[in-house]
Amino acid sequence: MELTVNGRKHHISPAAGDRLLNVLRDELHLTGAKYGCGHGECGTCTVLVNGALTYSCITLVEGCEGATITTVEGLADGATMSALQQAFVAHDAAQCGYCTPGQLVAATKLLEQNPKPDDAAIKAGMSGNLCRCGTYPKIISAIQAVARGEFRGA
């Protein structure tokens, strides 16, 4: 079957029951999305499938035939990071960084739907992604800074 991931077409032959997360990580070597819980509870595996926020750890890859998928590796344009990526760096929105790929994908989707989110909208949009280090205040300030147009990215 065919998948388009970060603009590149891939032909894969998944086994029955393969999860999208494992295909991305093990076959396509895109290790940005992470295993955190395997049950769609933590959000470290978050990617966009046809533009929809998706927990890839509980998504069967068989259902993704022909899909367009964006992972954290697809957010930058070559060496130019997206505005959100730059803001996450400047605002220290990553401590250990393990949840960061998922947070960035969720934040990208949030701003796409709502370019000027208030605090409540940010909290609602980002509440599917856990961070055990507690970077939440910095994630909020990074998203606000992008909404204010302080960063220009890819």
């Binding site: 990580r25 093990d26 070597h29 895109l30 290790t31 940005g32 999305a33 992470k34 295993y35 992972t71 954290v72 590796e73 957010l75 930058a76 990071m81 990526q85 996450f88 760096v89 400047a90 220290d92 990553a94 960084g97 393990y98 960061t100 790929p101 960035l104």
Partner: peptide, 21 residues
Amino acid sequence: TPRVDANEKVTGRARYTVDIA
């Protein structure tokens, strides 16, 4: 000053032990 390894973390390039294959 921002973290010296922040770029690796926000681009998904940082290699964690789970990523070692």
